[in-house]
Simulated assay, not measured.
Amino acid sequence: MWHATTFSAGRRLQLNLTLYVADSCSTFTNVSVEYSPEFCGSIRGRLTPQGNLNLDIHLNRTLRQGLRTAITLQQRVGGGYQTLFSYDLDTCRTLGELLQSSLMKVWLRNVFRYGHLPTRCPIQPALYDLRDFRLENYSIPGYLRPGLFRLNDTNYYRRPRGGRRRLVATFTLDIKLYYNGKPDVPPFGPLFGCTFASRSATSLELIA
């Protein structure tokens, strides 16, 4: 948003720019959980009225090297879902490299801000939780357009010689991304965001 601008010969040109920072542009609409009692005593997922995620995990067995995480993001198209991308990661290695840059590590750092979760292997038996978790703007790829999405996170161990997976836990989240107009922020019109939490002003002076 631009404020007063003045200019005359021999005087200063001053531009005041106010930046509006979007706080969030997504909401969770559903959560479901599946887990193996071999590894987990219980897992409870629930959504707040604001569409944020609360999660309680009771891990009753140590998770060691060999644990893998398969993450798939799908978009709702017609009556079904179309896969946008899918990753299959070495969980312990990924946790050990969190400071390096990649989309999956950006997402993990986003998650860790909202709860008490393990950051290294081996992952010890304990109670872990998330509180009021939401997707930060910086963790959402810019190419994702408004729509309905499904994120599936499956944690498992491979069985030798092509055997079936040993499931630890699967989390499925339905997500709504959307535009939201902000009528008191002219002249930009609709912006990609649902709330505007902070504003900052920057001044620039030029000598004419």
Rank of each mutant, 00 (worst) to 15 (best):
L84H: 03
Y81Q: 01
L151T: 00
G66M: 07
I57D: 02
G51V: 12
T91E: 05
R46S: 15
V77M: 14
L47M: 10
K105C: 02
I140A: 03
Q65W: 02
R161H: 15
T83Q: 08
G163R: 14
N152Y: 00
R61W: 04
R158Y: 10
R131A: 15
T154P: 00
L55W: 09
T83N: 04
Q82D: 05
L117F: 10
T69V: 13
P122T: 11
V111K: 05
Y35Q: 13
I123L: 07
L73Y: 01
T62R: 11
Y87V: 06
Y128F: 13
A70M: 08
D153G: 06
L73Q: 00
L99P: 04
G147Y: 04
G51N: 07
L89E: 04
Y157N: 08
G51I: 10
R64Q: 11
D129P: 00
G80D: 12
I140L: 06
N60P: 00
L98A: 09
R61H: 12
L47C: 09
Y157A: 10
G41L: 01
L98T: 04
C92R: 03
S36K: 06
C121Q: 03
L135I: 07
V77I: 15
E38C: 03
N110D: 14
L144H: 01
R44I: 11
P49N: 07
Q65I: 03
S86L: 03
N60H: 08
I57Q: 01
R64A: 03
Y128I: 07
Q100C: 13
C121K: 05
Q82H: 10
G41F: 01
F85L: 13
Y87W: 01
V77L: 15
R158T: 11
L135Q: 05
F39N: 02
C121I: 04
L99E: 15
R158I: 09
R68H: 13
R113E: 15
Y156I: 05
G41Y: 00
T62P: 01
G79Y: 11
G66N: 06
L151D: 00
Q74V: 00
A126R: 13
P37C: 11
L53H: 05
R131Y: 14
Q100I: 11
R120A: 13
P125Y: 01
H116V: 03
E97P: 02
G79V: 12
L135P: 02
C121G: 03
L130A: 13
L95V: 08
V111I: 15
N54H: 14
S86D: 05
H116G: 03
R158G: 05
P125E: 03
K105I: 04
L144Q: 03
Q75H: 05
L55S: 08
L47S: 09
C92Y: 02
S86I: 01
N137Q: 12
M104V: 10
L108S: 11
R46V: 12
R150L: 07
Y128S: 08
T119W: 05
Y157L: 09
S102D: 14
N54W: 09
E136Y: 06
R76A: 14
L108E: 08
E34V: 14
N137F: 02
